[in-house]
């Protein structure tokens, strides 16, 4: 693991600031994989084989396959859960012009994080600024603020901010005072008011994943009397995959990526973050509070979807399908 990591670093250092997409964009990743597979098969001709990659400033470059190696995970040996993935800064962009309240993000998130109560981590709000302005659907999740109000007030260091941008919760530490929930202006945190009805599902899953309970995978398991919330899926990032909500969305609403690499992708399309925010006039929720969220929104202008369609799915009093249990 160390070896692959070093190679990867070397590769980046060599000035080929590519492959960024490689680590987050599924599309590019698959390309990469198939290339290296092919490379392994035809080992003799491997040296001459090249692969096309796009750099972060939009140029296509050719790289010899031998310079690439598949990264198994991003963690590395010196990974510390409170520090995060080295040299990364994760961000999300939510394109409101595409959201029609399909709610696949919610169900996928609920399923993957074993949410069994009535407290989904993603909620899609029906928003309308005023009578005269158009309504739109707004998915919200944890904003992973750079100046998180929740972390500031936590008395026992249970919720913490990582260098890679993630705000996570150590539910083995949380004392259940709920001050973080009072402090969060986005109402994104939820509480396990009772014993989560997860049964053995999380245990089985942890066994299959060869993993232990960690803030890296919130909800696995959830604990009675502690706070939960969206974790930005570090367990998926580690596997070079996108968060569940991003891949589940049929409309490509969610873009995930790395601010240092200036790239975001929804799996099908990739953009330069700075360009996307500039061209589409991106903004963040409650910017005036100074919390500096890691989640950007693109305004619902020139819409690709019909707002009305979402009304069919609209259930103001429900976010978790409890019948699925």
């Amino acid at each position: 693991m160390d070896d692959t990591n070093n190679k990867r670093r070397e590769f980046v250092r060599n000035g080929v600031k590519a492959a960024l997409l490689g680590s987050v964009a599924t599309g590019a990743l698959q390309a990469l994989k198939s290339c290296s597979d092919a490379g392994a098969a035809a080992s003799a001709s491997a040296n001459s084989e090249t692969v096309e990659l796009m750099t972060t400033d939009g140029h296509l470059i050719e790289v010899p396959v031998t310079a690439l190696s598949e990264t198994e995970n991003l963690k590395g040996d010196d990974y510390r859960v409170r520090e995060g993935f080295p040299n990364r800064k994760f961000v999300m962009v939510v394109d409101l012009a595409r959201c029609k309240n399909a709610k696949k993000c919610i169900s996928s998130c609920n399923k993957s994080h074993f949410i069994t109560g009535e407290n989904a981590w993603i909620k899609v709000y029906k928003m309308q600024e005023s009578q005269e302005t158009a309504p739109y659907w707004q998915p919200t999740m944890c904003m992973h603020c750079d100046k998180p109000a929740c972390v500031k007030v936590c008395p026992v260091d249970a919720t913490f901010k990582r260098r890679d941008g993630l705000v996570l919760i150590d539910n083995e530490r949380c004392i259940g005072c709920r001050f973080c929930m009072a402090a969060c202006p986005y109402s994104t945190r939820v509480f396990n008011w009772e014993e989560p009805r997860q049964g053995e599902t999380t245990e089985i899953h942890m066994h299959l994943e060869h993993t232990e309970s960690s803030p890296d995978y919130a909800g696995m398991p959830s604990l009675k009397g502690t706070v939960d919330k969206c974790d930005f899926c570090p367990h998926m990032i580690d596997k070079n995959e996108l968060p569940h909500c991003v891949t589940a969305c049929p409309n490509g609403v969610f873009f995930f990526g790395d601010a240092y690499e200036d790239t975001v992708t929804n799996g099908d399309e990739s953009f330069r973050l700075s360009e996307l925010l500039e061209e589409r006039a991106g903004y963040r929720l409650l910017e005036q509070l100074g919390t500096e969220p890691s989640v950007y929104y693109l305004p619902p202008s020139n819409r690709l979807v019909d707002f009305q369609e979402g009304l069919e799915n609209y259930e103001p009093y429900k976010s978790v399908d409890l019948s699925e249990e």
């Binding site: 500031k152 007030v153 936590c154 008395p155 026992v156 260091d157 249970a158 530490r173 949380c174 004392i175 259940g176 005072c177 709920r178 001050f179 509480f191 396990n192 009675k224 009397g225 502690t226 706070v227």
Partner: peptide
Amino acid sequence: IDMGRPERLFFLFTHGRLQSPIIWDV
């Protein structure tokens, strides 16, 4: 009584963080 995890009360002393108003209160 209000705490979700009262058995972890001693974390306030073993893991207390001074920037939290709860610690000031304690």
